[in-house]
Amino acid sequence: MNLTLKIWRQQGPQDKGKMVDYKVSDISEHMSFLEMMDVLNEQLINKGDEPVAFDHDCREGICGMCSMYINGEAHGPDRGVTTCQLHMRMFKDGDTITIEPFRAKAFPVIKDLVVDRSSFDRIQHAGGFISVNTSGNTQDANAILIDKHDADTAMDAATCIGCGACVASCKNSSAMLFVGAKVSQYALLPQGQVEAVDRVKNMVAQMDLEGFGNCTNTGACEVECPKGISLENIARMNREFLSANIKS
């Protein structure tokens, strides 16, 4: 495949940045999108140009690092995949592919396609945990009976890898699917009940502080999420937040 790539290049956080056109040739349809980017970067390095900076780590859809906005969609046109799982067979020979970083005020660009998603870390630090005494007397997890449906739903929420595709896809740059998933994974389990009130209040307060937008329920986040996190998690967070504010 021969392709034209329109890629966002930005030297650093203060640089204005611009779209730059590149040509790549002999791309196999079996390559992953990141392998195609590797080919481009090798080509740039051989010419003495600066390679395109992009985030990646596990390259198997688990780490949530890859964060490209491809042809107007987070992680590209395929469904239920991260950018590293996106294959070049999704494109045609001669295509022009637009590649941009995830855009949100709360995700400032560090360089080229790399964005700073530490706002997600700060939201997690605000309440996305349970406090457990791990001094050696920890209770066996299996000793606490949990409804199978609740356990499955909590596990579905916990599959969120925090990649930020929800924020990138949302026209409002809202992080509510991410926060909703993190709140839900504890709200559904007995271990999460003790700190439930503080958790949701602190996580929502931090989310608002980071400058994410308000959810208007377009559902774009759910469609683009590589892990299929459901909008039900946002509804659950809304209920938890209301309940927490009534209680304290």
Partner: peptide, 21 residues
């Protein structure tokens, strides 16, 4: 207004029709 301020740099290409009505 708040939501527009949450994304100061717009996308060069955005395919909103692919994921929402």
């Amino acid at each position: 207004i708040k939501n527009r301020n949450a994304r100061t740099v717009k996308y060069y290409k955005n395919n909103g029709a692919a994921n929402s009505t």
